Measured scan of single mutants.
Amino acid sequence: MGTYKLILNGKTLKGETTTEAVDAATAEKVFKQYANDNGVDGEWTYDDATKTFTVTE
């Protein structure tokens, strides 16, 4: 398990959240659902060194 971070750079929603997941693929699924639930759809990037996903609208 590891802690993964999501940085939201949406047009109307900005912020950060974290999740505990077994791997990056699992964290990505959780974060994409979170972003979708909050109406954020954009370009995704992932930094393996910091376990950080970023979505920018």
Rank of each mutant, 00 (worst) to 15 (best):
T18H: 09
G10D: 03
G2D: 11
G10W: 07
T45V: 10
L8Q: 02
L13G: 13
A49L: 13
I7H: 06
M1Q: 11
G42F: 03
T12V: 11
T3Q: 07
D37Q: 13
K11Q: 12
V22Q: 15
N9Y: 11
Y34D: 02
T50D: 05
G2E: 12
K32D: 02
G39D: 11
G15P: 05
D23T: 06
T12H: 15
L13D: 08
E57M: 05
T54Y: 09
T45M: 14
K32M: 11
K32Q: 11
T45R: 14
T54H: 06
I7D: 03
L13C: 05
L8S: 03
Y46R: 02
I7K: 10
K5H: 10
K5L: 11
T26V: 08
K32R: 13
V40G: 02
Y34W: 08
V40Y: 05
T50S: 08
I7A: 04
V55E: 01
V40P: 02
Y4A: 00
A27L: 00
V30P: 01
T3F: 09
T52Y: 03
D48G: 09
K14N: 14
A27K: 00
K5M: 11
Y4W: 08
E16K: 05
T56I: 09
G2H: 15
A35F: 03
W44F: 04
D37S: 09
F53C: 01
Y4P: 00
A27I: 01
D41W: 11
V55Q: 01
Y4Q: 00
A35K: 01
T17V: 13
T26R: 08
K51F: 13
N36T: 10
W44S: 01
M1C: 05
K14M: 15
L13M: 14
L13F: 15
A25E: 10
T54A: 06
E43V: 12
Q33W: 06
E20I: 15
L6N: 01
Y34A: 03
T26L: 06
T54P: 00
Y34C: 03
T54Q: 07
D48L: 07
G42C: 02
K29I: 15
T52F: 03
D47N: 08
K32H: 10
L6W: 02
E28L: 15
F31H: 02
A49P: 09
V40K: 02
Y46G: 00
T50L: 07
N38H: 15
N38W: 12
T3M: 09
K32W: 07
K14I: 08
G15L: 15
T17Q: 15
E20T: 11
N9F: 07
G2C: 06
N36D: 15
V30M: 10
T52D: 01
T3K: 13
K14Q: 13
T52G: 02
T18R: 11
T45C: 05
N36W: 10
T3E: 11
W44H: 01
N38T: 12
D37V: 11
G15M: 13
G2K: 14
G42S: 02
A25F: 10
G10L: 14
N9D: 12
A49I: 13
D47A: 04
L6Q: 00
E16Q: 06
T56G: 06
K11I: 13
N9H: 07
T3L: 13
T52C: 06
N9L: 15
K32E: 04
E16N: 03
N36V: 14
T3Y: 09
T45W: 10
K29H: 15
T26A: 10
Y4R: 00
T52H: 03
V22C: 05
T12I: 12
E43P: 07
G15H: 14
Q33G: 13
K14A: 12
F31A: 01
G39F: 15
V30T: 15
K14D: 06
T12C: 05
D23Q: 03
A21H: 03
G2W: 11
L8I: 11
Y46F: 10
K11A: 13
K11N: 12
D47I: 07
T19S: 07
G2M: 13
D47G: 02
I7N: 05
T3G: 06
T50Q: 10
D47V: 07
G15C: 07
T3W: 15
G42M: 03
E43S: 07
A35H: 01
E43D: 15
Y4D: 01
V22I: 07
T45K: 13
F31K: 00
T52R: 03
K5C: 04
G39H: 14
Y46Q: 01
E57A: 05
D37C: 05
L6P: 00
L13T: 07
D41F: 07
V22L: 15
A21V: 05
T56F: 10
A35T: 08
T52I: 06
A25L: 12
K51D: 03
K11E: 12
L13N: 15
T18C: 06
M1L: 08
E28G: 13
A24R: 10
A24P: 13
T56Y: 10
F53N: 00
T26Q: 11
T50P: 02
T3I: 10
K32F: 08
K51C: 06
V40A: 05
Q33V: 13
V40D: 02
L8W: 11
T26W: 09
D41A: 09
D41L: 15
E57K: 03
G42R: 01
W44E: 00
A24M: 11
V40L: 11
G42K: 01
A25H: 10
A49D: 13
A27N: 00
Y46P: 00
M1G: 15
V22D: 15
L6D: 01
K51L: 12
T45I: 06
K51W: 07
T54D: 03
A27F: 00
A21R: 02
D48S: 09
K5D: 02
G42H: 02
K14R: 14
L6C: 04
I7P: 00
W44N: 00
T54C: 05
Y34L: 07
T54R: 04
E20D: 14
A25R: 13
F53P: 00
A35W: 03
Y46D: 00
T19K: 04
N38G: 04
F53R: 00
G2P: 06
A49G: 07
T50Y: 08
V55W: 04
L13I: 15
G15Y: 13
